Amino acid sequence: MMGLEAGVIGLVAAYVLLSTLLLVVMIFLPLPRVAKIAAIVVASLFYVGVFFATQRLLGWSAPVAVPDRFQVLWTRVIEPNPSRNNPGAIHLWVEELDESNLPSGEPRAFRLPYSVELARQVSAAQAEIDEGRPQGGRAQFWGEGSGEKMGAAPVNAAAPPGGDPSGGGLFDPSLLGAQSKSVTLAPLPKPKLPAKDLPE
């Protein structure tokens, strides 16, 4: 998996490539030499600006799809505030798990649209984490219909995961194809370790 730093460098490199192509085209346009030099200087300043501006974005929770299977490391529920036109949000700091429930070692932060049901699940999961009981999650249902318990709240496999859908709008992550499909949280399953060979 490409790291965040490599992603930032790749983004800046793509910007440099596009800008260079535009500047090459400008060389052959009948423009004053001063205009061409100014365009080169401005484009070069933008390279630096894009790099540092992108660095500031790395700590923000990403409104993209959560992993299919993950461990919840920490949570933060932002309640809606209509007076400030704030729809609320749910932030999850998670670590992806493989099919054996082993962690990837690369924690990431995700932002999901606020819903009452998802906020309830997340608050219950955080209470369990505070008590030292690791919590996991999936972008799909846990189990096969029997339901599992997270603290005192049962996870109903017949209900839609996470509760209410987001409210829509031009910048709604679901409209952009990046919605984190509401998650279902439950106690973290133990890792599935390979069987040890018995001594002969």
Rank of each mutant, 00 (worst) to 15 (best):
G167W: 03
L18W: 14
I129Y: 06
I9V: 03
S44T: 07
A186G: 11
L29A: 10
A157I: 11
E106I: 09
S61F: 14
G177D: 10
L118M: 15
P134I: 05
P80S: 03
F46W: 08
E131D: 02
Y15W: 14
Q135M: 14
S182W: 03
K190Y: 11
L22H: 09
A127S: 15
L198K: 14
P113F: 09
E117Q: 14
R84T: 00
G168E: 12
K192N: 06
F141R: 01
R56W: 11
F70N: 09
E96W: 00
F110A: 10
G88W: 00
W142I: 05
I37Y: 00
A109G: 04
P191N: 00
I129C: 07
V72D: 03
F171T: 04
G59I: 05
R33E: 15
L112W: 00
I78S: 05
G10D: 02
A178Y: 13
N86T: 07
A152S: 15
E128F: 01
S182T: 09
L45H: 08
Q179V: 00
V16Y: 12
P154I: 04
F110Y: 15
G105L: 02
G59N: 07
S104H: 09
K181A: 07
P154D: 02
A178L: 12
V72F: 08
L17E: 10
R111N: 01
E128L: 02
K190H: 13
P87R: 04
V183C: 12
V66C: 14
G177W: 06
P30K: 11
V50T: 05
L175M: 15
V94R: 06
E79L: 11
D130M: 01
W93E: 12
A159N: 14
L170K: 12
P165W: 00
E79D: 15
V42H: 08
I27R: 13
R33A: 14
R76Y: 13
Q121W: 10
L185A: 02
Y15H: 14
L198N: 11
S44R: 00
L73A: 05
A6Y: 03
Q121D: 15
Q121S: 01
S146N: 13
G88N: 08
N85M: 05
P80T: 02
L97G: 04
L17H: 13
A38W: 11
K36V: 05
S180W: 08
D98V: 03
